[in-house]
Every structure is written in C-alpha cells, then in structure tokens.
Computed example of a mutant assay.
Amino acid sequence: MPTALAALEEAYARSGAPAGNRPDGRAPVVGYVGSDLPVELLTAAGVHALRLTGDPGSGSAPGDRYLGRGVDPAARSVLTRLLDGSFGELDRVVVSHDCEASLRLFYALRELGRVEPGAGLPEAYLVDLRHLPHRTTTRYNRRRLGEFAARLETWTGRALDLAGAVAAHDERRRLLAAAAELRRTVPARLTGRQFLAVVNAALPVAEHVALLRRLLAEAGRLEEHPGRRVFLSGSDHDTPHVYEAVESEGQVIVGEDHSFGDLAVEGPVGAGGLDALAEHHHRGGPAAHRATAGERAAYAAAAVRRCRAELFVAYCRAGDEAPAWDFPAQRAALDIPAVLLERQEYGRVDLAALRKEHPCPM
C-alpha cells in the first residue's frame, strides 16, 4: 500500500482533470471557481465537485479572445480549458465573486451560453459574496447563500444535508491545520509542493479525511527537508509550477497567504446552518483581493513568526497586480528580508531576480 502522502500526491495530480464517470450515473458534476465559494453547500447537495484550475503549459488563445489579455491569465486558462473540454462533462459551473478575474469569467460564460449555445459550455451560476466589514454584508451574504442552496436543491431534486457537510469540512480543516504544522517544524517534514498536494487532492471529503488521518499517523516517517525557509505571499497558485521552481534551488516554502494553501484551512464553521456558513465566508482569510494592506501585513508578520520563515517573497502574476499594493506595508511589518517579484508569467517565477536579491546559501 502506498503511503498516505503518495496517495495524496497522486490525487493532486488529478486536480483539474476530467471528472470521469459518475459513480451513480445521476449526481451532477459541478465545476467551481473562487477562493470563497461555499464548497460545503456542494457537498451538502451530494454533487461531484471539481475545482477548476488552469494549465500554464497550454496556450490560452480562446480565453484571451473572450476575456482580453489584461485579465489574470489563470482565469483565461480556465476559460480555455472549458472551451476545449479539458474538464470533461460538467453539468454546471459555479463561480464566486472573490476577485475581478472570477467575475469577468462568469460574465464571459453567461454571455457565451447566450450567443454561442453550440460551444457546449455548462450553465454558469454566480455566488456573489461580499467582504466589507459590516453586518449588512453578512446579511447580504446570507441571502445569497440561501438562494444558492435553493438552486442546488432544484438541480439535484434532494434536500441538503448541511449539518453533515459542515461537520465533514470542519474535520478536514482540523486535520489540514495539523498537517500544516508538519512543514513548520525545523527542518520541515513537508515541502510547500507536498503541502499543496495535501490540501488540494482531488478527493471526496470522506476519502480526503481518511488519508489525512493516515498522513498524520505516518508523520514520524516523513522525510526531513532542510533549506532556506520561504514564506510565499501574493497571487493564488492553482498549479505547483512556481513551488517546484523555488524549491528546486534548495529552499522550502513553509507558509503562504493564498487560497490553495494555508488560507484554505482557516478556522471551523462550527454550527451547521446557513447563518454560520455566511459568517464564516464573510470572515474568510486575508486574501489579497479582499483584505486591507494593514490586515495583510499583520497576517504576514504573525504567519512568518509561526512558520519560522527566513525570507518573505511576494509573488504577483501579470494581470494580478493587487498583491503588489500590499508589499510596502508587509515589508515594514517584518523582521526578515523581503523581496517583491512583479509581473510574473503564469506558472513561472524569475529565479534570477530572486537569486540577485537574496542568494540562497548552499
């Protein structure tokens, strides 16, 4: 039997791949985009959920045509993959309003469905959550979640088991938080690339939970990973390419502030109702597109201390400039070296610039 880590890495390699055959032949397959999408509702509805990711190694000309090259290339790549059928048969695509690129993607999908029905794109649905620090925002989000829950019941013809879904996702978050501690040890027992696999393995929640329990039970047998400890801030990383490049140079990414990493395991929902779910997704983590510079700087300072990082790297893709605005405040809040890498190509990192600013001791 493979180790739990090997099984999680294998499942991660399938992330963004076609959904495959439906186990019961009936349950809808729903692709989703967005860091604040309430995945608990998808689980509660019994659908097969697939987080849609881009592919830096493929072209994005069709997505560029409809979205324009000024939009984050990750969103353009997702649209391209939807147009060419890379995700297999999807019944619906659900998009959250976590950033401007996601919203632009939703509008493109909706309009393409209207004017080019022959393109075969699935129906798109927007979950328009907001993150302003007001109680009225929470009430707005509660209404949007209620509408989404009702729509899911219409799609599936079944009542939602929200309490069971919230409990399952909270248990997964608890186990992921314990796994995050494995790379905060010195030396790290997980690399950043491995942690991406642990968090984003393409598995149903119950199977993911079972593998996470095995991983923690096998923690004493995990390999140690010495090297300069890096905290990675900025753009989301829906693929492992940048992590692999950074870690190929004798560094280990021990923390980050994006939704495919540490921010995916922030806190439990607790109660199993829509009110608690609205509160949880209103709070969220300090992602670059919804938190203030001060909030991002405070989080960075605390997270760097917690994971004992030695270098802070702010990575910003071309077309995703918002994270760079926070860098001055982050740098001022830190007591370790910090470097800003701007206008990076999707899935790539300028290692020459990183070496020039902060050579890695070998």
Score class of each variant (00 low, 15 high):
Ala7His: 04
Glu10Ala: 15
Arg14Asn: 08
Arg14Ile: 07
Val47Pro: 00
His48Gln: 08
His48Phe: 10
Gly54Ala: 09
Asp55Val: 08
Pro56Asn: 10
Asp64Glu: 11
Arg65Thr: 03
Leu67His: 05
Leu67Tyr: 06
Asp72Val: 02
Pro73Ala: 10
Pro73Leu: 02
Arg76His: 08
Arg81Ala: 05
Glu89Leu: 06
Val93Gln: 10
Val94Trp: 01
Val95Phe: 03
Glu100Cys: 02
Ala101Arg: 00
Ser102His: 03
Val115Tyr: 03
Glu123Arg: 05
Ala124Val: 05
Leu126Asn: 04
Tyr140Trp: 13
Leu145Phe: 04
Glu147Thr: 05
Val166Ile: 10
His169Tyr: 09
Asp170Thr: 11
Pro187Gln: 05
Pro187Lys: 01
Phe195Ser: 05
Ala206Glu: 15
Arg213Val: 10
Leu215Tyr: 06
Glu224Trp: 02
His225Cys: 03
Arg228Glu: 01
Ser233Val: 10
Ser235Lys: 09
Ser235Gln: 11
Val246His: 06
Ser248Leu: 08
Val252Pro: 08
Val254Lys: 02
His258Ala: 09
Asp262Ser: 06
Val265Tyr: 03
Glu266Asp: 07
Glu279Ile: 08
Gly285Lys: 02
His289Gly: 11
Gly294Val: 07
Ala298Trp: 00
Val304Leu: 12
Arg305Leu: 15
Arg317Asp: 00
Trp325Tyr: 04
Ala338Phe: 01
Val339Ile: 15
Glu345Pro: 00
Val349Met: 02
Asp350His: 03
Pro361Met: 02
